[in-house]
Design a protein around this nucleic acid. Structure first.
Length: 550
RNA sequence: UGGGGCGUCGCCAAGCGGCAAGGCAGCGGGUUUUGAUCCCGCCAUUCGGAGGUUCGAAUCCUCCCGCCCCAGCCA
């Protein structure tokens, strides 16, 4: 799919493994827990995992890491599958579920008990924490640590049979309570949770922890490179311990990369959920959300997202990527693939005093791509222009319409403003202008060129549309550090107005993207746009190197 | 002051002992019926700091400094 690959440590690692014959086929996996919507950080993980498989001719699985039924649901599974597909990736075979390996995990847990490497511990959560010690002091052995194998077997079976209450006990690995790596201080393998599971129903009342499940899931699926984020590096010794002490079918290895952070946005499920629950945004797929569903609705493209992830690279150093990089990727793709059209966001009436009958003009859909063809646009005596594009007087830097001066109507004639009407407040309510003859395909004969070009929409055929202009959700670079979310929410992140769009824009399919010339990129809303009642979201404005110079 | 990571241009990031890629942002200039795009040019004698090894170090060694992660029966 994407052909250019810049160097990074994962690609180097995999290439070396292939060269050395350590692996003969690359198999990766994207393993989300279905407890929320995917966000930009997951997009990174998806492109890394699927991208690596693609580059090296391997495959990538989509596996739901559903070991904690309390927070998970089918709704999230559906949303995640949809997001991955939308990004343009196809997982190998069927979707996998950690829950479909529960019986195997149970048997492996019994295996550990039988080899005296796991035991049932009756310590309460609080007691266990106390026994665990601290970062600088060793932990103490649980008083249940040396229960006989038979007793452990009996107790574990009892846990599984639902004869124990939640929290009464857990199954723990017997490793080293004095390890400087806290993950090795007899970690929990199984806990009792008497809740129905979205996939396995009431089959189980004990569920494996991430640590006990993940590596074995990878082993079962023959994952060659298990890629995760940096915070799991401390878990690798444990990951390897299970692989070494269990009769697993393969020996996957874990590699970690730094998670993606983007300034002016938050990427933690907890905080995103807070935005949704507090009503700051309309939902997980609100166009201002950094969720994949949100960015999709905003009008971002899969290609832009994939290129963005490739451009930021994959390394092991923590960093914060400038959101401008994401916006650049979006503009870059849209500039290439979005047809041009005209829409007046802030309508001001203009009458062409010397145009008797309407004309049909042929206007190119893309300035650099003839293949996109041309469209017919009607020009009648009454049109709309943007209020920002007219001034009664202005200095020479103002390249738009000024009384007594000329400007080019995009794709049409050069016009000259004659006079304007004001209301009681002194606001301009209508402009009268005349067409300069012979200027359809060229400059005026008298040599007085137009100062600039403005967009317009025919008043007779233009259609009123709802325009949703989005801006960044937060006012500060690092919103996650704010004490109170309310202090850093941008109160102007959504501005709803009514504009006039050219006729053709009213009947397109939802999610069709355009560049509204001189304004920015817009997308017909995925849900609310309808023929005859157009709703457009501003994806991103055009790059602007001028307003700050005025 | 336990363990594990990371420090290369404002931001991201290549580089793996031979003399600092690229992208984003920024700044100049050109083209332009989008103040867009496109094009051209500029933008780290220097790689967290200090020593050392070497003919030669961002790359190897030592010490120091800074930042991130770990004490869920979350993932």
């Amino acid at each position: 799919m994407d052909t250019e690959h810049r160097s990074n440590f994962l690609r180097t690692q995999i290439q070396n493994d292939l060269n050395a014959g350590i692996v003969d086929r690359v198999v990766t996996r994207f393993p989300p827990e279905p407890n929320g919507y995917l966000h930009i950080g997951h997009a990174k993980s998806i492109t890394v995992n699927f991208g690596l498989a693609e580059q090296f001719g391997g495959v990538c699985n989509l596996r739901f890491d559903d070991t904690n039924p309390e927070k998970e649901s089918q709704r999230f599974i559906d949303a995640i599958k949809s997001d991955v597909s939308w990004l343009g990736y196809q997982w190998d075979g069927d979707v996998r579920y950690a829950s479909s390996y529960f019986q195997q995990f149970y048997e492996w847990a019994v295996h550990l008990i039988e080899s005296e490497k796991a035991y049932v511990c009756d310590l309460s959560a609080d007691e266990a924490r106390e026994y665990r010690g601290t970062l600088t002091t060793a932990g103490r052995d649980s008083p249940y640590r040396n229960r006989p194998i038979e007793e452990n077997l009996r107790l574990f079976e009892s846990m599984r049979a639902g004869e124990m209450e939640e929290g009464a006990c857990v199954l723990r690995a017997k490793i080293d309570m004095a390890s400087p790596n806290i993950n090795l201080r007899d970690p929990t393998l199984y806990r009792i949770r008497k809740v129905a599971h979205h996939q396995t129903g009431d089959d189980w009342v004990i569920y494996p922890t991430y640590d006990f499940a993940h590596g074995q899931e990878d082993a079962i699926e023959g994952i060659s490179h298990s890629i995760c984020t940096l915070e799991f590096e401390d878990h690798k010794p444990l990951y390897d311990w299970f692989i070494e002490n269990l009769p697993v079918p393969s020996r996957p290895r874990q590699f970690e990369f730094a998670r993606l952070n983007v300034n002016f946005t938050v990427t933690s499920k907890r905080k995103l959920k807070l935005l949704v629950d507090s009503g700051v945004v309309s939902g997980w797929d609100d166009p201002r959300m950094p969720t994949i569903a949100g960015m999709r609705r905003r009008g971002y493209t899969p290609t832009a997202l994939r290129h963005f992830c490739e451009e930021v690279g994959t390394s092991r150093s923590d960093g914060v990527v400038d959101v401008a990089m994401l916006e650049s990727a979006v503009r870059n793709d849209l500039n290439r693939q979005a047809p041009r059209a005209m829409a007046v966001l802030n309508p001001l009436a203009l009458e062409l005093t010397n145009l008797d009958d309407a004309e049909i003009l042929q206007i190119p859909n893309h300035p650099a791509d003839e293949i996109m063809g041309k469209r017919e646009v009607r020009l009648s005596p009454r049109i709309w222009i943007d209020r920002e594009d007219f001034r009664q007087e202005a200095n020479k830097k103002f390249k738009r319409l000024v009384l007594g001066k000329r400007v080019r109507l995009r794709g049409a004639y050069v016009i000259e403003a004659e006079r304007c009407e004001l209301d009681d407040q002194g606001e301009v309510i209508k402009v009268y202008a005349s067409i300069v003859p012979q200027t359809l395909g060229g400059d005026p004969d008298d040599g007085v060129k137009a100062k600039g070009v403005i967009h317009w929409v025919d008043a007779e055929t233009g259609v009123e549309a709802e325009i949703r202009s989005y801006d960044r959700l937060f006012t500060v670079e690092d919103p996650s550090r704010a004490d109170n979310f309310d202090d850093v929410i941008n109160p102007h992140s959504l501005l709803v107005t009514r504009g006039i769009v050219e006729m053709g824009l009213a009947s397109v399919q939802p999610e069709t993207r355009f560049q509204f010339e001189r304004e920015g990129y817009f997308v017909a809303d995925r849900y609310d746009h309808a023929a005859g009642a157009p709703v457009y979201n501003r994806v991103i404005g055009l790059r602007d190197t001028w307003t700050s110079h005025e």
